Amino acid sequence: MAVKAKRPTDWRKRFDGAKPPKNVVLHTDFAGIKTGTTMHIASPGTIANFIARIPVGETCSIERMRNELARKHDAQAACPVTTAIYLKVVAEVALMDLAEGKVPSDVVPFWRVIAPDSKIAKRLSCDSQIIEHYRLLEQSSGG
């Protein structure tokens, strides 16, 4: 029996085809968030917009991003699971754009949120040194 080859992920399709953001009230505990909490479920677009507003040379933790997204969307928390998934989607689209010749200033600067030594960095299609490179490049440009 032959093993079926896995097709590569179409990151742009995942970005464009994602459900719109919404708030939900949890009926059970989920990912460390308690029952009754209003939780924001973002979209790749809302995450990309958030990252694009981080000033050049600055970084933001994923936790801080989640907290700010929740606050901005009148929720008590932001979903850690979908945030991580959509952050990866945003990063992979940016990596594709860079590979196709776009300059760093024309892509979503995911390196401002994804730390080189983070779990999510290890799951990206690039080496963590790429993230370090873009962070250093921005710092040396004077922000």
Rank of each mutant, 00 (worst) to 15 (best):
S125T: 15
S105K: 09
I41G: 01
A115W: 03
T9S: 02
V93D: 05
L87S: 07
R135V: 10
T83A: 13
V3R: 10
D97N: 03
P55D: 14
P8V: 10
V108H: 07
I85A: 14
C60W: 03
P80L: 09
N67E: 15
K22Y: 10
K6D: 08
I114T: 07
I54T: 03
K119V: 15
I41W: 02
I41R: 13
L69H: 00
I62P: 01
R7W: 02
I54H: 01
E58N: 03
L26M: 06
A48R: 05
Q76M: 04
F50C: 03
N67H: 11
T59D: 00
S128H: 11
P8M: 10
D127K: 14
G143F: 08
T35I: 04
A121V: 13
N67F: 02
K13I: 07
L136S: 12
A42G: 00
A91D: 04
E68W: 01
R123L: 08
K122I: 05
L124V: 15
I120F: 00
T46C: 08
R12H: 02
S118H: 08
I47C: 00
I131D: 06
A99N: 09
P55V: 11
L137F: 08
P116N: 07
A48E: 03
A42Q: 02
A84Y: 02
S128F: 06
